[in-house]
């Protein structure tokens, strides 16, 4: 993995204490978990697992960008495990009584819900790339470096993912570039 200096601040390693890492990245990890699981309960589990894993492993990460990449890939992998099969047959939440009805995360507006639902239905490869690009504001090169993909592949997945979103959005409406 290589990340160039112009793409991210390469400042000195920030505090690696778990609580400090949680404070810096809790929103990012939660967003990725939610996008990749769609259910609030599953996202909660992923969120907890990711930071517990970090806490237990205390991975040797050389710099903030590597820490961030580790968290992103770990979250995506963990979410994949949770949603590999239907959630209710795959993983039991901390509290089994929560299993009954998965609580779909809801946004403030219908359009936001729809966008999120369409995003959630994409194959994971597209979902991850679209999420990182639109919600985490990462550049194509950054995404490529983090996911260990070619930049061309990331561009393709962005383009293809937007195309898939377009067909899924029931209200109609699609991404375009100006």
């Amino acid at each position: 993995m290589s990340v160039t200096a112009c793409e991210i601040e390469s400042g000195a390693r920030m505090d690696g204490d778990t609580h400090a890492v949680v404070a810096r990245y809790k929103d990012m990890v939660y967003r990725i978990a939610l996008t990749h699981t769609r259910y609030a309960g599953d996202a909660d589990d992923v969120f907890q697992d990711v930071f517990l894993a970090y806490h237990r492993k205390q991975p040797e990460l050389n710099g903030e960008e590597h820490l961030k990449a580790w968290l992103i890939t770990t979250t995506v992998n963990c979410a994949r495990r949770v949603s590999m099969n239907s959630w209710r047959t795959k993983v039991i939440p901390m509290r089994p009584e929560d299993m009954e009805q998965p609580e779909v995360f809801h946004f403030n507006s219908e359009v936001q819900d729809e966008l999120f639902t369409a995003l959630g239905k994409l194959p994971e490869a597209y979902k991850t790339v679209l999420h990182l690009f639109y919600f985490e504001d990462l550049s194509v090169n950054m995404i490529a470096a983090m996911l260990e993909l070619e930049a061309g592949t990331v561009k393709m997945r962005l383009s293809r993912g937007r195309g898939l979103m377009r067909t899924q959005m029931s209200e109609g409406g699609y991404f375009d570039e100006r």
Partner: peptide, 28 residues
């Protein structure tokens, strides 16, 4: 510490200062 931090804003690292501005995307 988590509770104390829960009100904090989005981590500043999420938008690298050196990154090029991305294009605006619109819905049509």
């Amino acid at each position: 510490p988590l509770q104390a931090a829960s009100g904090s804003t989005r981590p500043a690292v999420s938008r690298p200062t050196g990154a090029p501005k991305r294009k605006r995307r619109v819905w049509l």
